[in-house]
Design a binder for these strands. Structure first.
Length: 347
DNA sequence: AATGCGTGGCT
DNA sequence: TAGCCAAGCAT
């Protein structure tokens, strides 16, 4: 594996030469971003974060809202909140230096078993075993584990640990990631070019593609609602800050009705608009798929005067007007960018 | 232990 | 196309 890694490893922005230890700050930042997120999606965000906040002290000193705005579009926003919280904790409790043990790392916000092991191995050279989805898949195939996920997680973790070398555990972990990402893929694995095909029980039995087995997941429910895009005459759009926790926590939103199972009558929905105006239903709908539900929004739009006043149920203290040219830098999640784009397309 | 939590790219 | 799913964590 290590010889293969030395030759074939992917060159990624947060990686250093084989055998070297990487900067813990960069390892941590990349690992948080990579949680449930593809390398391709992470790369531009990683570059922007590192350019803007080159050190953990700089990140800890930043306002949370700036971090959330920079995270907008990457998803799973509790990661951004915990990233900021973790930076502050490392600066205040550890003088800006990450602890090097798995136990200490895992006490920090946003760092769980996987990330603690990854940082320990990659940044500190500990013989640790980060087990992510890639490693689970590779190990399930190497040992032909037929038990299905998530029940098999404990066993897969145990088996993975038996493979970790004493030296270069960080490179070994990253080799497993590369193997899982490029060769031992979920569908149509490239067993013919796999460096460990000779050691793979699943390949020997011709069942690599069937593993790991997974319990089928529950059907995704659908939720619906109305969203209200108010465009002020000076070109500003009305947005509102969401609650600090939960879905899209701390991010900005377009004011909307509650997202429910049933669509309220339009007349009733319009009574919950954030301000009195001549609301116009934008043709079509906005569909957005979250992890655990599918959302369909009907979008209303209104052009309002510069002195328009908000209704009290719009919670004016949480609202703000943002110039259209500044929207790109705002803490707007993708679903809200879709809504605004839908409302403003074709003038 | 099961559920809540985003997004975009792939097939 | 409509799922499937990616370098998980918190509760």
């Amino acid at each position: 594996m290590l010889a293969w890694y030395d030759e074939e490893r992917r060159d990624l922005p947060w990686r250093v030469a084989p055998g070297k230890r990487a900067d813990p700050y960069r390892v941590w930042l990349s690992e948080i971003m990579l949680q449930q997120t593809t390398v391709k999606a992470v790369i531009p965000f990683y570059a922007r974060f590192l350019a803007r906040w080159p050190t953990i002290k700089a990140l800890a000193a930043a306002p949370l809202d700036d971090v959330l705005a920079a995270w907008a579009g990457l998803g799973y926003y509790s990661r951004a909140r915990n990233l900021h919280k973790c930076a502050i904790a490392v600066v205040e409790d550890f003088g800006g230096k990450f602890p090097s043990t798995i136990a200490e790392l895992q006490k920090l916000p946003g760092i769980g078993p996987y990330t603690a092991n990854a940082i320990a191995a990659i940044a500190f050279g500990e013989s640790a075993t980060p087990v992510d989805g890639n490693v689970e898949r590779v190990v399930a195939r190497l040992f032909a584990v037929r038990q299905s996920l998530p029940a098999a997680k404990t066993e897969l973790k145990r088996l993975a640990a038996t493979l970790t070398p004493e030296r270069r555990a960080g490179d070994f972990a990253q080799a497993m990631m590369d193997l899982g990402a490029g060769i031992c893929t979920p569908r149509r694995p490239s067993c013919l070019v796999c460096p460990v095909q000779q050691d793979c029980a699943a390949a020997a039995h011709g069942i690599a593609e069937q593993l790991p087995m997974r319990l089928e997941r529950a059907e995704r429910p659908q939720r619906v609602g109305f969203a209200f895009v108010a465009l002020r005459e000076d070109g500003c759009v009305l947005v509102r800050k969401r609650a600090e926790a939960g879905l899209l926590g701390g991010m900005l939103e377009v004011p909307s009705t509650a997202w429910g199972d049933l669509l309220p009558p339009a007349k009733e929905a319009l009574r919950s608009a954030p301000l009195r105006a001549d609301w116009w239903a934008v043709p079509g709908t906005v569909v957005h798929v979250f992890t655990h539900f599918r959302l369909e929004l009907i979008v209303y739009r209104a052009l309002v005067p510069a002195d328009a006043t908000l209704t009290f149920w719009a919670e004016p203290e949480r609202c703000q007007w943002v110039a259209r040219r500044d929207l790109h830098a705002a803490a707007l999640p993708s679903v809200m960018r879709k809504v605004i784009g839908h409302a403003l397309k074709e003038n």
